[in-house]
Design a protein around this nucleic acid. Sequence first.
DNA 1: GTGAAAGCGCTAACAT
DNA 2: ATGTTAGCGCTTTCAC
Lengths: 334, 334
Amino acid sequence: MSKRTSPPSAHDVARLAGVSQAAVSRAFTPGASIAKATRERVHQAAQALGYRPNLLARSLIKGQSGIIGVVIGAPRYPFFLAALAALSARMSKAGKHILVYTAEGETTVDLLVEHLLAYRVDALFLMAAGLSPRLARQCVEESVPVITYNLPAEPLPGFFAVAGDHVTGGARIAEHMLQQGYRRFAYMAGPPGSRTSQDRERGFSEHLAGRGVEAPLRAVGFFQREAAIAATRSLLAREDRPDAIFCGNDHMALAAIEVARFEFGLQVGRDLGVAGFDDLEEAAWPSFSLTSYSLPVDGVIDRVAAILLDGGENEPAATIVPGELKARGSTRRG
Amino acid sequence: MSKRTSPPSAHDVARLAGVSQAAVSRAFTPGASIAKATRERVHQAAQALGYRPNLLARSLIKGQSGIIGVVIGAPRYPFFLAALAALSARMSKAGKHILVYTAEGETTVDLLVEHLLAYRVDALFLMAAGLSPRLARQCVEESVPVITYNLPAEPLPGFFAVAGDHVTGGARIAEHMLQQGYRRFAYMAGPPGSRTSQDRERGFSEHLAGRGVEAPLRAVGFFQREAAIAATRSLLAREDRPDAIFCGNDHMALAAIEVARFEFGLQVGRDLGVAGFDDLEEAAWPSFSLTSYSLPVDGVIDRVAAILLDGGENEPAATIVPGELKARGSTRRG
DNA sequence: GTGAAAGCGCTAACAT
DNA sequence: ATGTTAGCGCTTTCAC
């Protein structure tokens, strides 16, 4: 009925309930020392007015906002979005909130973190590279816990690092491919600067080297479909065509399968082994049956949530979340 | 070096720069009346201390937080996440911020909106159903613009509604299938309560009826892969098997294609027409070549961003964002 | 258990 | 152009 332009304040409620404004505050503070009857009366009045404590004011006093800042560098990649969804669900259950930014160009991360800091976020979760040392230091000085995901293992002191087990995964893929009888290997890399891709490649190559196999061929797919298609073509057009390709992520691997099948008429598995990394949902679909190494969203988010919710009391540390080899038809020789 | 536990305030900066605290505020307010030299000096001092205006305090005064609240009901569905990413990019460019919640069960939307309102969000973008009339009324009273996406066309007065053109899309699919020579149709529905699914079905069925075709068969896939697989099986196991299935979204359609192909040995297109809705990225992949009706993320977000940024000056209204038929191999008879 | 009063860090009049 | 003052809506001593 009444058209109000600004929301009711604690004062309004206090007046209506016939108590002091402080009492209103107490009525909404769990465990505050207040008589049951008073709390009742206050809540009644609040209900009537549609009052809701202003969290901005509370945050201002507490010096903590209850907000977790999240920066996503590659919003197109399903894994990050799945992680975001999982984290969001976890945090809302804990009464925390998630302020999200997507970083288009790498260079903007600094700007976004700057904004986030201005909101006095309780913690930062970075799924993007490009934080400058200056800002990083500030985060530590202002004791804002920062969690990085899949970034350089020793970025800045005082940071939490959570990462998938890329090196082990690469090695497991290599071993699996060897067992299946493949002999001439190739690795399709992500963007040159990607630590993730580097680690996966290293695990793969070093395992092969340890087995006395010659170094894999190499192509760059930039973690993108179009580039991966081009990379696959160049690999398969060679005279010394590889008989197995390990792609730095599933997105590229799915593209590789399609190129092999539809453009080169190869039977994936028998003629050409293909493996990816991350174990996206599509990998298990019968159209692809893509061998992959899982990067468990839940495992990652478990760890992240634990750090976030344990109040930053724990010491900064690096966590490697183990994955699992998912052997499927795309690397089945028979 | 110095270990400070709480960030520097405007006072600290003022002291260091030898000016009043208000001057510091002005130095960080674009267009404020302040001498160039003073601003310089303040910025210098701020830089030295690592000062950053506390946005919570500013928001408290302004009564506006610069935060847009977003609620996502189905965080698993790529469209919503793509929309989120697009919106986030747009908003950060405009200096706004996005507070995200995912709603697991429908019933929690109220709770989330309550939280969001407590943060004095400038606007709400709901990609989830289940807001109670009570809260809806409060949003309007507190003049918080609310944009709903793909929800009932006339939800609450004072709301902005943005939706894809589901009815037209359904009709276009029907017409296309008829032209391709399919004659016995089926519709695979989403969850019973989904307005989106209902609209798509209505457009489809009514167009068919208008052409004198008998009513399509029907199965329910709940917008989920597993359920869609089961639904497809039940449809294809019938004696009077349909020769064309229109699925309420692409996710289900992709599953349907695989069941038809791998379980029933059908050649999709020739033996069975399949169409979806949304035009996900996967639809264009050669493995599927799925006919779909696009639901343009950018078109939707354009409209949403316009509402959000034009300061809620425009009148609440409903917008239908047009899509486009993407005819592909999955409905090609020849 | 409750109220009065002092801020949290900032912006917005109001003076000068 | 700048400093002073008064809040924004809340939490938190501190009396009582």
